[in-house]
Amino acid sequence: MATQNTRMLARMMMAPSVGLLLIWMIVPLVMTLWFSFQNYNLLNPANVSFAGLFNYKYFYTDPAFFQSIWNTLAIVLGVLCITVTGGIALALLIDQPIVGQGLVRILVISPFFVMPPVAALVWKNMIMHPGYGVLADINRALGLQPVDWFAQYPLLSIVIIVAWQWLPFSTLILLTALQSLDTEQKEAAEMDGAGALNRFFYLTVPHLARSVTVVILIQTIFLLGVYAEILVTTNGGPGYASTNLPFLIYRTALLGYDVGGASAGGIIAVILANIVAFFLMRAVGKNLDK
């Protein structure tokens, strides 16, 4: 059916997207790679020279680098733990027959639509502020000392904020998966005398496993790049206590004017993301074959 003509037309219709994306991706990536081997500081742009692996070495020996890698992983793992367990629990809860289910659903997914700077500032000022925040009010009502969240637990505070933003995402996806579970299958299992626990472990869990994988992979991609939440709350501090890799690169590039160093960091970020991407692509690709 696909004649020479339609194939030609199809190619022409695809060309703009493919071409633009190709340019948009390759050119900057090659530039980053090139800069990462150069001594290039924006304060001294006339003096650019080949640096070999110096930038990588410099980045690698910087104590902030290992801290930032650790912080990046801590944010990813911390948020994943909260959102996956919380998401499963919430999805199972909302999937029950409850009064006002639609409204409950809307309330639960709302945080996802709050732009990151708003989410971070609302938590920073109205919830976690040691003087005027709601948590401080609760502590005082209980006779406890208010916690200065961002000074005492900067990384945990950021994990909590980001987890609040992503909990709706995992809940929504797992809920969608739950609802696509065949009710006939559930009823059949029930008729055969399978108890609630058995039904959960032998029917629901295997059914959710794939969606959980997708949730983990997609969130990881976004969580590796957490940026705005750090910028408006702790600004990476105190010290480097809440600086992750994206934030360190931003600091090196736009506050330190060190193009070469930041580019070396960028290449490291690409490698990190690619490890995750590899697994995500496999999960999505499998689905495409169906």
Binding site: M14, S17, V18, L21, W24, M25, V27, P28, L29, M31, T32, F35, I221, L224, G225, Y227, L245, P246, I249, Y250, A253, L254, V259, A262, S263, G265, G266, I267, A269, V270, L272, A273, N274, V276, A277, L280, M281, V284, G285, L288
Partner: peptide, 22 residues
């Protein structure tokens, strides 16, 4: 092509911050 397009989403924005900024 679809998988390649998906892969472009995987590139961390911060990795291309410097070239785009310049």
């Amino acid at each position: 092509i679809l998988m390649w397009m998906l892969s472009t989403k995987m590139m961390p924005a911060v990795a291309v911050l410097v070239p785009f900024y310049l």
